[in-house]
Design a protein around this nucleic acid. Structure first.
Length: 488
RNA sequence: GUCCCCAUCGACUAGUGGUUAGGUCACCACUCUUUCAAGGUGGCGGCACGGGUUCGAAUCCCGUUGGGGACGCCA
């Protein structure tokens, strides 16, 4: 009878949340939650040279934002702690010593210089460096005396010389590697801290992790970890290796290109829910053509069987589309709150009703950062070419435009109420009186009000948002503008 | 270089021996319409290649090619 499902997300604190890492966390969370299991956060900070200030907080914050609430972790505790590897040093040391006893590892006193030389020689011979096993031949007495002497040492994994090692991956199936291909990696460093190669095994076992979910860059490393479990006589977890996410140019998503971290996307105006939904689909599908999933729906629908083996290219276009879907689903007030900071970047006027504006903008926004460009005409009428008034489809030319703008101006000036309905009725009455096509009246007005080829609403919408005074001013400007171009 | 893995429209993918190879994004057209969007309808577009196995292969096997990954006292 297997115990409850326990999965873990084990990032190293690098200072940002890689989008691929977030997806791994997502899958780990989903697998745990759909089985009523536990999702655990563990910080892998065994490389003290890589320490980055505040990096752990980025991890906490991002997981929180994404809704991937963990059941155990450094900041919330749990009965398998500590959850920060640098605080588990003694555990690794005990287990390393134990592993040496069991024959799965050995002390190594080789200097960094000797290793460097070996590496160089191998390079010259165009071979790949593998440790030559020198210290594995040391006698027990010599090891004892050098240890007693205080010689610096590391602990290396002892790999069987012949044979092969296999395991079964839940996604990729049987993986088999010749033991001769496996390097005898350092398990415990000279600073007393473990390498990933050791710590992941110890911690996953000690924390009762049932499913190891990680990127498939570990696929060919895992046999080494299996050997470790077997040396200890421990039961191995299930392995779920997930394909990588790569860039449109086929390269790895890099931290430096500014398109790899969660914050990069968040700051560009993508919604957290959309990001989570989108990355879930990179390498996983529900097999039923559904694509829009809230986190809770993902939890229900997720399955290891839906995971794909081949790498997935991150497609910003599809993320944009999906983000648009999420934006349109927002309640008006919600959208307005999110849009406000962006409005304020482009609009200095204080008499604009943002809610009215949001009604127009929400439908036309794919990512929040589009907003300033959509509303840029509100503060100041942009310069535009008079030819904008000539529109074949709207059946307008300069003369028609003038003949529409002038009476519209006169009627609108008389208008007491500036409600959408009243503006509409006034203009449509005029259209009827003059026997015009709707567009012949409305296109020139829209043009005069926005100065743009496209605007986040039609003539009446814009008039309403701009207010009576500004609307009349811009129409007058339009009239003068057209006249100046037509009068010879 | 050695080893591991992968291979369906431009992208994400469904497909597990018999399908007109399906869906989504993007793209194009049409439609709706006071612009643009959004919505609706339709279209373009794919099984990398070569051998097998089989009555029959996108599906199974082998090879080729292409791609990704691993080979640190990084994770």
């Amino acid at each position: 009878m297997p115990g409850p499902v326990r999965t873990r997300f084990a990032p190293s604190p690098t200072g940002y949340m890689h989008i691929g890492g977030l997806r791994t966390a997502l899958y780990a969370y989903l697998l745990a939650k759909q089985n009523n299991g536990k999702f655990i956060l563990r910080i892998e900070d065994t490389d003290q040279e890589r320490y980055v200030d505040g990096a752990v907080e980025v991890i906490y914050r991002t997981l929180k934002m994404a809704g991937l609430n963990y059941d155990e972790g450094p900041d919330i505790g749990g009965s398998f702690g500590p959850y920060i590897q640098s605080q588990r040093q003694s555990l690794y040391q005990e287990h390393a010593a134990k592993l040496v006893e069991l024959g799965g590892a050995y002390y190594c006193f080789c200097s960094a210089e000797r290793l460097d030389n070996l590496r160089k020689e191998a390079e010259e011979r165009k071979e790949i460096f593998q440790y030559d096993g020198l210290c594995n031949k040391l006698s027990t007495e010599e090891i004892k005396s050098r240890l007693a002497n205080g010689d610096p040492y590391i602990i290396r994994q002892n790999i069987p010389t012949g044979g092969q090692t296999s395991y079964n991956d839940e996604v990729y199936g049987a993986i088999t590697v010749e033991n001769s291909q496996l390097d005898e990696n350092v398990l415990l460093k000279s600073d007393g801290l473990p390498t990933y190669n050791f710590a992941n095994v110890i911690d996953d076992h000690l924390m009762d992790i049932t499913h190891v979910i990680r990127g498939n860059e570990y696929l060919s490393q895992t046999p080494k970890y299996c050997l470790l479990y077997r040396s200890f006589g421990w039961e191995e977890p299930k392995y779920v290796h997930v394909s990588q996410i790569i860039r449109p140019d086929g390269k790895k998503l890099s931290k430096r290109t500014g398109d790899a971290s969660f914050d990069d996307f968040y700051n560009k105006g993508f919604l957290t829910e959309a990001i989570v939904n989108y990355i879930a689909l990179l390498g996983w599908n529900s097999k039923d053509d559904r694509e829009l999933f809230a986190l809770s729906e993902l939890t229900e629908a997720f399955s290891i069987a839906g995971l794909s083996k081949s790498p997935a290219i991150f497609d910003p276009d599809k993320l944009k589309w999906m983000n648009g879907e999420y934006i349109r689903k927002l309640a008006l007030e919600q959208f307005n709150d999110l849009a406000k900071p962006y409005y304020q970047k482009a609009i200095k006027r204080t008499d604009i009703d943002f809610i009215k504006l949001s009604k127009l903008v929400q439908l036309r926004t794919e990512i929040l950062s589009d907003i300033p460009a959509i509303v840029d005409f509100i503060d100041a009428l942009p310069e535009y070419d008079v030819s904008l008034y000539v529109n074949k489809k709207m059946k307008t030319d300069l003369a028609v435009s003038l003949e529409s703008l002038k009476p519209a101006l006169a009627e609108l000036e008389k208008l007491g109420s500036w409600e959408h309905q009243d503006i509409h009725d006034t203009l449509f009455k005029l259209i009827e009186q003059k026997g015009l096509k709707t567009g012949q009246m409305l296109w020139p007005i829209r043009t005069a009000l926005s100065g743009k080829e496209s605007s986040p609403g039609g003539a009446i919408d814009l008039a309403e948002v701009l207010g009576k005074e500004e609307t009349l001013r811009r129409i007058r400007l339009g009239v003068v503008f057209i006249e100046s171009k037509t009068i010879v």
